[in-house]
Design a protein around this nucleic acid. Sequence first.
DNA 1: TACCGCATGTAAACGGTTACATGATTAC
DNA 2: GTAATCATGTAACCGTTTACATGCGGTA
Lengths: 192, 192
Amino acid sequence: MASAVSIRCFILGLLARQPMSGYDIKRFLKSLSWLIDSPSFGSLYPALHALLEGGLVTVEVIPRHDKPPRKIYSITETGGQVLREWMEQPVSSGISLKAFLMRLILASNFSHVGLLAHLRQRRVEVAAHQLALQQATEVMDEGTDLGERLAFDYVLAVATVELSWLDRTLDRLSQPPSPVEATQGNSATVTV
Amino acid sequence: MASAVSIRCFILGLLARQPMSGYDIKRFLKSLSWLIDSPSFGSLYPALHALLEGGLVTVEVIPRHDKPPRKIYSITETGGQVLREWMEQPVSSGISLKAFLMRLILASNFSHVGLLAHLRQRRVEVAAHQLALQQATEVMDEGTDLGERLAFDYVLAVATVELSWLDRTLDRLSQPPSPVEATQGNSATVTV
DNA sequence: TACCGCATGTAAACGGTTACATGATTAC
DNA sequence: GTAATCATGTAACCGTTTACATGCGGTA
């Protein structure tokens, strides 16, 4: 598994928001290319065909004069069920950032509690990761390779900031009211 | 490309440090599993065979009584050249953390200037990434999906801490002397 | 006229995992 | 005795990328 989740699930989630053509999906994913690398057509179209085959989506073919017809895909009842199951399953352990982001992007379309659960799940995993990194660095002696030490330190720094972001965000999202005086977010752009 | 670099290059770099068997490599990589996921035997052994085939490594077969023989792989002259070329090439643009970490781990076995160049290269890429993320978040209006906003904010927070880590580390490594009074590293474990 | 965006798709290659296959040695 | 570690490898499978194939419409 390249990212434990495969784009198929993610595409399904996007179609749950609104029906789209393959090209639309590609365009949207491209706009998120700073978060997750968008799949090529070579995997996107086959993925849609597979979803269609499995009855998780339907397609409405809109023929156009002298052009290839547009194919608008919509999620089906069964597709919705599969998606819900996927979103609710305990999140493949392991700490792939991409898999987390995919679910995060979709999560707000589901329940608020689901979103919180997802963030808490990530918190647990990052905390475990951080702990392991700390233990690994403690074992190091002066003989340890410089590159290795730097690499561990780097990843540890990232894990630490991830944790504090998660804590901050969980705080904000947990106490829903008071849109007044927002807590200063790291980028000052997220207002819940 | 799964990670733009393929384990083959990385293995080659590890063999440049010291000759090892496939199993040795696996053991070492496992100890770094918190940084990069270590390959399975199913890709490790074929990778070694491929390197051997290409003349980038040699193997010394050490037969042992009634056991499978150990096979100690060593890097060759040509292998060293290929490795050097790989280390010096401008680093596949794109911002794969794994690819960066692999090179970082190997970099200290090369020149000190090479290490610095590698960190600076990363700095450039992360800075560009951060800028793009900021621009993306600025475009967002209230209509923007909550999950998307959170995802961007999350990644932005990570990019920001990466940048400050890189700056801090470049500072420390650039002025080589004065091992006295170390700058407080984030984990307090990295003393250069 | 030449290129870019729209819009769909296929085929070959690649890089990797999982599961399988074998078998000795050591530690509980 | 049974499980884990040492030690090597192969074969089937999976998901993805790259390159190929086609063709219209707008624009620089």
